[in-house]
Amino acid sequence: MSIQHFRVALIPFFAAFCLPVFAHPETLVKVKDAEDQLGARVGYIELDLNSGKILESFRPEERFPMMSTFKVLLCGAVLSRVDAGQEQLGRRIHYSQNDLVEYSPVTEKHLTDGMTVRELCSAAITMSDNTAANLLLTTIGGPKELTAFLHNMGDHVTRLDRWEPELNEAIPNDERDTTMPAAMATTLRKLLTGELLTLASRQQLIDWMEADKVAGPLLRSALPAGWFIADKSGAGERGSRGIIAALGPDGKPSRIVVIYTTGSQATMDERNRQIAEIGASLIKHW
């Protein structure tokens, strides 16, 4: 067993022997301040990774656009098919120029040779490549099948209805392509620590998230040296922004954090800054 596999296998073990965790309302004060600064709703939840206990939450059962955070769930569904012998990570998928959609920095470079399922998941999570996500959605049967996968996990809230990039439209009061912070946090925890996926697939999923290259201005910008984070960000229309993450000190994750916002007129930089400040408060009061 590799060191990384050992780390993920012992996530519940280490967490069980940690000192009790206590909620700190100071972080919620910052979440509410972010709402004021952005002029928009902000949803927040913080779960203990081992027990699933909610440590703090704000608007945990209000719907927010998922945006690209759905790509972690998508690759979880792909990995479940791999575990069941219905898919192979090494299978190569070929596609054409007509398949390319807006923001496809990886797939646009491989029109000639195609990409493997493993490479597509890596591109979808680490670079948020939209064509990679659409190609992977095709392998599982489309958005409705991802929703069905989530329902089978016990998540009857999260739903995907459309493809990239239309799913980022974020129309107010439109339930399409949305989740709730509580539902997303619980589902992410199941994917990373539950028995739904094999140990190898859980490790692969967290490795992809740990290698995320496009979430630097968010929670990662607030992390002290030595902290662990595996995350996936999302951005959408109407001032929408979000991030889902597993993080913790001492090089291992111990909490799940989900943050979503929508309806702001603020710039992307300002949305990023507010999420980073929430992260800084979380870490300060850990």
Rank of each mutant, 00 (worst) to 15 (best):
E237A: 15
L197I: 08
G248R: 02
M209R: 00
F228C: 07
E119T: 06
G142S: 06
S2A: 08
V82W: 07
G216S: 09
Q274T: 15
G216P: 05
F64E: 01
V42P: 00
I244M: 08
T69P: 04
E195R: 12
L135E: 06
M209T: 02
W227P: 00
M67F: 04
L19T: 15
G142V: 02
L218D: 03
V258A: 09
N50Y: 13
F228W: 05
A230S: 06
N173I: 09
D269Y: 13
S240N: 07
A222H: 10
L137S: 06
G263M: 07
S104T: 06
P181I: 04
L160M: 12
I243M: 06
I54H: 11
F149E: 07
G216R: 08
F58S: 10
E169H: 11
A246T: 11
S201I: 03
L100C: 06
V78R: 00
P20V: 03
P172M: 12
E210R: 10
V8A: 11
P249D: 07
T126P: 02
P253A: 13
M184F: 09
G263R: 07
D48T: 05
P105R: 05
E175V: 15
A266L: 14
K32A: 14
A148H: 13
P165L: 08
W286Q: 03
N98G: 12
L19A: 15
Q88D: 13
T147K: 08
G85P: 01
T27K: 04
T262S: 11
E195V: 08
A230N: 01
E119K: 06
A123C: 08
E277L: 11
G234C: 06
N152R: 15
L19P: 10
K232G: 00
S104Y: 03
P65F: 03
L167D: 03
A16E: 05
L55C: 08
S281A: 15
T262D: 07
T107G: 05
F70N: 05
F149Y: 10
R118C: 13
P143M: 04
E145G: 15
K232P: 00
D174W: 02
S254Q: 15
E270H: 10
P217M: 14
V78H: 03
W208K: 01
K32N: 10
P253F: 09
G216C: 08
A215H: 04
A132C: 03
G242C: 06
Y44L: 11
D161K: 03
I283R: 06
M180Q: 15
W208Y: 06
L282F: 08
R91K: 10
G279W: 03
K109N: 12
A222S: 14
L196P: 13
M127A: 08
L55I: 14
A280S: 14
P143K: 03
E35H: 03
H151Y: 14
Q86T: 13
V214S: 07
M1I: 07
E61H: 15
R241Q: 04
N98A: 14
L136P: 00
T193V: 15
D207R: 12
T179A: 03
I93H: 05
S264A: 09
A170C: 13
E87I: 11
W163P: 10
F228R: 07
M66Q: 06
S128V: 00
A200S: 15
F70E: 02
P25L: 10
A185Q: 01
P181S: 05
R162Y: 03
Y103L: 04
T107Y: 01
H5G: 07
L219S: 04
K190L: 10
N134S: 04
L137H: 03
A225R: 13
K213R: 13
H110L: 08
Q265A: 14
R220K: 06
I125Q: 02
I140N: 04
N152K: 13
L74D: 00
E237D: 13
A211R: 14
G114E: 04
D33K: 14
E210I: 15
G279A: 11
E270G: 08
S51P: 03
S233K: 01
P12C: 13
S68V: 00
H94I: 15
E62K: 06
Q97C: 08
L111V: 14
R118T: 14
F228K: 08
L223H: 03
A23Y: 04
M127D: 07
R63V: 08
I283W: 07
I125G: 01
R7A: 10
S57V: 10
K71Y: 00
Q86F: 10
R273A: 13
V157I: 12
E108Q: 10
N50F: 12
T198G: 11
V117H: 03
Y103E: 03
D177K: 01
T193D: 09
E277F: 08
M1D: 01
I278N: 00
D83V: 03
T261W: 04
P165G: 06
L47Q: 07
T179E: 00
E166M: 14
A230R: 02
Y260V: 07
A123V: 07
R238E: 08
A170G: 13
P217L: 09
E35W: 01
L188I: 12
A230V: 06
A124N: 04
M67T: 11
D212N: 07
D36G: 15
Q88Y: 13
I171Q: 15
F228Y: 13
I140C: 06
T27I: 09
D99C: 06
D177W: 01
P172E: 13
V257D: 00
E87G: 05
L74S: 03
I275Y: 05
P60T: 12
A148P: 07
K284W: 10
V42H: 02
T69N: 02
E87K: 03
A266M: 13
N168L: 05
I243S: 02
A84E: 12
T69V: 03
A215I: 03
G251L: 09
H285L: 09
C75L: 05
T131I: 01
T126V: 10
V72K: 00
A246M: 15
H151D: 09
M184N: 01
C18W: 12
P217D: 12
R92K: 12
L38W: 06
P172I: 12
L219D: 04
N152E: 15
L79P: 00
R63F: 06
D177S: 02
A230D: 00
A235E: 03
T126S: 13
T69G: 02
H94R: 13
K53W: 10
N134Y: 04
T147W: 04
D250H: 14
A40R: 03
F22Y: 10
S281C: 12
L73M: 11
K213V: 11
H110T: 06
V82S: 09
Y44Q: 01
G142Q: 04
R81N: 12
A77D: 09
S254T: 14
K252Q: 11
T131V: 05
T261L: 10
A40H: 04
R273S: 10
G142K: 04
K190N: 14
Q37F: 14
T116C: 07
V82N: 06
T147A: 07
F22M: 10
L100R: 05
L136W: 00
R220H: 04
E26Q: 10
T112Q: 15
E166K: 12
R63T: 09
A276P: 01
G142I: 01
G279K: 00
I54K: 07
D113Q: 12
L150G: 05
D113S: 11
P181R: 00
E62D: 10
K53F: 10
Q97L: 14
A124H: 00
I283H: 05
L136M: 07
A222I: 13
E237G: 15
D83G: 05
W163N: 11
V8E: 10
V21Y: 05
L199R: 12
A215M: 03
L196G: 12
R41L: 09
W286G: 02
I45M: 13
G142A: 04
A84N: 14
S221M: 11
F17N: 08
E87D: 10
L38E: 06
M268Y: 08
R241T: 05
G226K: 10
V21S: 10
R176H: 09
N98H: 14
A225S: 13
E108D: 11
R238S: 11
D83R: 03
S96Q: 12
I54Y: 09
E56K: 12
S51Q: 10
R271E: 05
T158V: 04
F13A: 14
L219P: 04
P224H: 06
R176C: 09
T147G: 10
Q204E: 14
D99F: 07
L197Y: 05
D113K: 12
C121Q: 02
T267S: 13
S80V: 11
H5Q: 12
G234K: 00
I244T: 07
E164G: 00
L191I: 10
K53Y: 13
K32E: 10
